[in-house]
Simulated scan of single mutants.
Amino acid sequence: MSDTREKHAIIRYTADVVAVTDDGRVLLIKRGWAPYENHWALPGGHVDEGETGLQAAVRELEEETGVRVAEDDLRLVGVWDQPDRDPRGRYVTVTYLVTIPADTQAVAGDDARDARWWSLIDLPACLAFDHADILATVLPPTS
């Protein structure tokens, strides 16, 4: 007799934020833990129980960078769900875009070793996970 049970992946739900300034910079954090320890990444993290992806995006942005935004300021820009996007297992992330005033300060907090505004034309060579793909999809091409 063959096994006819379906095999479902365990999926973890996360939210990421592409925070940009009107003068062409994006906010990245330096990861303080594996995987991709010491690599730059978008602010974001796990969606907690009872929380929406939008609420998690607002919370994670503030926890990791000190930057506070309202839920209404964020715009959903996509869902990234490639099966191999995270070496820890199956992760699906919802990604939000927010525009921040150019003089906004960012300070590393929570799990971030550093938080820094990067010029869109001078991003780190190797970003964590598929964050380079996310940025390439979300942001306009730079020349």
Rank of each mutant, 00 (worst) to 15 (best):
A115S: 13
H39P: 00
R68T: 15
L139D: 06
V138F: 11
L27P: 04
Y13M: 05
E71Q: 08
A9V: 07
K30L: 09
Y91Q: 14
E63L: 11
W117V: 05
P43K: 03
Y36I: 03
L120T: 14
L120S: 04
G89N: 10
G32D: 01
A106K: 06
V94Q: 13
A132E: 15
S143Y: 01
Y91L: 14
A34F: 01
G53P: 01
D114Y: 06
D130Q: 05
L61N: 05
T93A: 10
I121D: 12
Y13S: 13
W117K: 06
R75V: 15
P141T: 14
D130L: 12
E6W: 08
A56M: 01
A70K: 11
R59S: 11
T4N: 14
A106P: 01
W40H: 05
V58Y: 10
V18I: 11
R25V: 04
H39W: 09
R85F: 01
S119W: 09
V94W: 15
D48N: 14
L123F: 09
R12Y: 15
I100G: 03
A106D: 09
W80R: 09
L139I: 06
G66R: 10
P83H: 05
Q55V: 08
R90T: 11
Y13D: 15
I121V: 08
M1Y: 06
D16C: 06
L27R: 03
Q55R: 08
S143K: 07
Y13W: 12
V79G: 03
I29Y: 10
E64T: 04
D22T: 11
Y13P: 01
Y96G: 02
D23S: 06
G45N: 06
L139Q: 05
A15D: 05
R31G: 00
V47R: 09
P87L: 06
V17I: 13
D103R: 01
E37H: 02
D81Q: 10
G32P: 04
V138P: 12
I29T: 15
V79K: 13
R59H: 02
E49D: 15
V18F: 10
L135Q: 01
H8L: 15
L61A: 05
V69W: 14
T137R: 12
P101H: 10
A136R: 15
S143N: 12
L42P: 04
A115M: 04
H46D: 13
L97Y: 12
G89F: 14
A102H: 04
R68D: 07
V47N: 10
T93Q: 12
A136K: 14
Q82V: 03
K7L: 12
G45S: 08
A115E: 08
E49N: 09
A102L: 01
L76C: 07
L42F: 13
V20K: 08
M1R: 05
